[in-house]
């Protein structure tokens, strides 16, 4: 009885300390993470509709000088080296972009990338001369080429790896470091362990809108859809902590083993202490 009281005191002290240094201190240091906004309604309303055939022609005329669209056999008009020298970043392939990027965002983005991404130095030039119909046609075309289901790795490849490397998956950044440094002011961090370094909610909100969490950062807002963001972050979590399932499984067995140990040692103690007062 007395010993249980001592144990209770220990448990209370440890718990109070734990709550203080973990949940409470984290709350004070990082605040609460604001929820993501996947509607992007800070941008003017723009629901693109159009004809993919016309879109294909418009794409070839306006976009393919910089972007490839491998799903439809379109190669970029410039090679990586030239692109790096011109923009300090390699433009992404756009085969699947319509599945990754929310279409209202994408429409606004094509007209004015700098506003949509909240990055005044965003490297793609604005195309104010395109009419709403033309933009609608281009997006209709992009939708026609895009796969409907993408894995986290594919999303990562199309949306992030022009800037970020993922060393532990042997994925280098497509743009070289010196150019990224010129373009973004710093070399973007490697994403191999981001899933462990940052909380799940943090990553979701950060990818949704980097400015909310790092005001003034040069990472652009990329306009990912809710599904794409969640698939991507699940993938980042997975590669950062590949043994999560195994850890749980082994953990349960170890605890069962220890529990048997507790029962046995308790029985032995009872036996030995029977005659001791």
């Amino acid at each position: 009885m007395k010993e249980l009281k001592i144990l209770a005191v220990l448990v209370v002290i440890v718990l109070v300390g734990y709550i203080g240094i973990e949940p409470y201190a984290k709350h004070v240091m990082h605040g609460t993470i604001p929820p993501p906004d996947f509607s992007y309604l800070d941008l003017p309303k723009f629901e693109p509709v159009g004809d993919p055939k016309k879109g294909r022609e418009l794409f070839k005329a306006n976009c393919s000088s910089c972007h490839s669209l491998k799903a439809d056999g379109i190669e970029a008009g410039m090679d990586k080296k030239t692109a790096e020298l011109s923009f300090h970043v390699v433009p992404p392939d756009l085969s699947n972009v319509a599945t990754i990027i929310e279409s209202h965002f994408l429409a606004n983005f094509i007209r004015d990338p700098q506003t949509a991404t909240k990055n005044p130095k965003f490297a793609m030039p604005p195309m104010g001369y395109l009419t709403n119909d033309q933009i609608g046609n281009i997006i209709a075309y992009l939708k026609s080429t895009a796969k409907k289901e993408l894995t986290g790795k594919e999303i990562l490849h199309d949306a992030c790896t022009r800037c970020h490397s993922v060393k532990y998956q042997k994925i280098p950044a497509e743009t070289s470091q010196e150019h990224l440094k010129i373009y973004l002011g710093k070399i973007p961090p490697d994403l191999s362990l981001m899933g462990r370094a940052k909380e799940h909610e943090y990553l979701i909100t950060f990818i949704n809108n980097p400015q909310v969490l790092l005001p003034g950062t040069t990472m652009p807002r990329l306009g990912l859809t809710k599904e794409a963001t969640e698939t991507l972050v699940a993938y980042l979590d997975k590669i950062a902590d590949p043994y999560k399932e195994q850890r749980k499984k082994i953990g349960i067995w170890v605890l069962i083993y220890m529990f048997i140990g507790v029962v046995l040692t308790y029985a032995w103690k009872r036996k030995i202490w029977k005659n001791i007062h």
Binding site: K248, L255, G261, T265, I272
Partner: peptide, 23 residues
């Protein structure tokens, strides 16, 4: 006698320890 109790305390402690290690 002392160690009989010690082993009991030890297994309880290790259970707590491995709970932390894995979870």
């Amino acid at each position: 006698v002392f160690m009989a109790k010690e082993f009991f305390v030890m297994t309880v402690f290790l259970t707590f320890f491995f709970f932390l290690v894995f979870f």
